[in-house]
Write a protein that binds this DNA or RNA. Structure first.
Length: 271
DNA sequence: ACTGGCTCCTGAGGGC
DNA sequence: TGCCCTCAGGAGCCAG
């Protein structure tokens, strides 16, 4: 599943291959993604030159002079650069043919992803307008979390996964960050002190930075399509480890569903 | 304004 | 070996 570190890796990998390229044609083989792929996609992009490849949260923004292509990979989406003679495979849904000859190919078995048009002011788009800060910027800190959580009762883990508060903290990273910070996931977010939120914000940054350094949980090579395992999975302290000992204190890791998501924590060192 | 629950979809994994 | 069932997950959306 592409988490924020993976999406950023995809962006960095694709950008040098895409910028200044012209879209020669767009072929939509399966428009039924999370939202229908716009019927006018091909017409809107044909002949347009890619100016930049940006990222906001887990959305990729491919910008043209008068249009922006918004791509979300959902849980199972991937983008690859392929040569024109490479046969399409099952779940290859959209081809962006570049004038240089190669094809940017969108693949998504579960179709939780999205391909949309967002015009010339993409950051004003409904999907991007209300997003919280990027987790690795200074705007994301303990003061922010503390201020945003006052008067609210949701469990801190659910709060942390709310994109309106901070983007890019997925289910795995939320459990891991709370473990690093020593905070129990079920604690109502409005009852957590400023000091503990300082610790939590630092923990989120640490976990995400660590994940980037380890290559994410799984990374797919965007050029040759080889899936290679990231090493972050080997470093998970609590996620998926119900019944096993906590690597920090030896306590028995517990699991339960919180906000429809599996949640893991150590009852001994997370309070 | 919050909150909890639902939904989309397919592949993986377990049980038998 | 194969079939069936359950579950997982990102995140927008809606009802209460």
């Amino acid at each position: 599943m592409p988490e924020l570190p993976e999406v950023e890796t995809v962006r960095r990998g694709l950008a040098p291959h895409l910028v200044r390229q012209k879209i020669h044609a767009v072929q939509v083989f399966e428009p039924r993604l999370r939202w229908p792929v716009p019927a006018g996609l091909a017409q809107a992009l044909r002949g347009q030159v890619i100016h930049s490849v940006e990222r906001r949260s887990k959305y990729l923004l491919i910008r043209f002079a008068r249009e922006t292509l918004l791509i979300h990979l959902g849980m199972s989406g991937s983008l690859r650069l392929v040569s024109p003679d490479e046969a399409r495979r099952r779940h290859d849904h959209v081809d962006f043919e570049l004038s240089g000859g190669s094809i940017l190919r969108y693949h998504d078995p579960r179709r939780f992803g999205a391909i949309l048009l967002a015009g010339v002011e993409p950051y004003a788009h409904a999907l991007l307008r209300n997003l919280g800060p990027e987790p690795l910027t200074d705007a994301f800190n303990g003061a922010h979390l503390h201020a945003r959580s006052r008067g609210r009762r949701v469990a801190v883990k659910v709060f942390l996964m709310d994109a309106a508060q901070v983007v890019g903290v997925g289910n795995i990273y939320a459990s891991e960050s709370l473990h690093v910070a020593g905070i129990r996931p079920t604690t109502p977010c409005g009852r957590i002190s400023r000091q503990r939120y300082d610790v939590l914000a630092k923990a989120v940054k640490l976990v995400l930075t660590d994940s980037i350094a380890q290559g994410g949980t799984t990374l797919r090579d965007f050029v040759n399509g080889n899936g290679r395992p990231g090493y972050f999975a080997q470093r998970l302290a609590v996620y998926g480890r119900e019944g096993q000992p906590c690597p920090r204190c030896g306590g028995e890791i517990r699991a339960r569903r919180l906000g429809q998501r599996s949640t893991f924590w150590c009852p001994d060192c997370q309070r």
